[in-house]
Amino acid sequence: MTLLDFARGPALAWSLYILFFGSLLRLVGVLLARKHVDLSQPRNADTLGDSVRTVFTRFWFKPEFRASTLFITLIGYAMHIGLAVVVLLFVPHILFISKLSGLSWGGLPNDTIMLAGAITLAALVAMWVRRLQNPLMQAISNWEDHLALFITGLPVLTGMMAYGHLFQDYPTLLAIHILSVELLFVWFPFGKLFHAVMWIPTRFKLGAHFSRRGVKA
């Protein structure tokens, strides 16, 4: 079995199992935790609308915080959007997903994808430098934060290397790229990358909490 066969075969299968069951374990464990019944009289009993609204309003900061959060928010968006473009709109990725799921859609030209990848990597590096240099970020960061950035950036970097056939033969580079994606799959349920799932219930719950008290969250 070649490295590529391993990456495309058992490694992929196991990483997907871990991704799915690990995520399920964490999500269900959190959502089914004990709930405290609130006996206070709500100012607003129907909180659904506000809860859903909060899920979306938190995509952008409030005007009061513009000065302090604009830069890192834009960097964050650059990273997330760039990553989404690379993952979902690169034609080989679409073919790969289609093979697994049967779903298919149109992609973007390769040069555009490379540009998106470069932006993603640059944003990740900017976030990492900020985490290393900024005294506040130094104080609140732990090894998981650095690992999350590394694990996110690695598939983008190896993918761009594979596309450019840099340093190694293509099959080896492709195998390394797939393995780096599988590393992300394996770590996703256990580290802070899981915020990609948790942002929805957490924002929803905060929206419900504040709505119940009549606060615009």
Binding site: V30, H195, M198, T202, K205, L206
Partner: peptide, 13 residues
């Protein structure tokens, strides 16, 4: 409780 658990699982530092 569940709300607090969800919050602690979400922090991205």
């Amino acid at each position: 409780d569940a709300d607090m658990a969800s919050e602690m699982e979400s922090c991205i530092h």
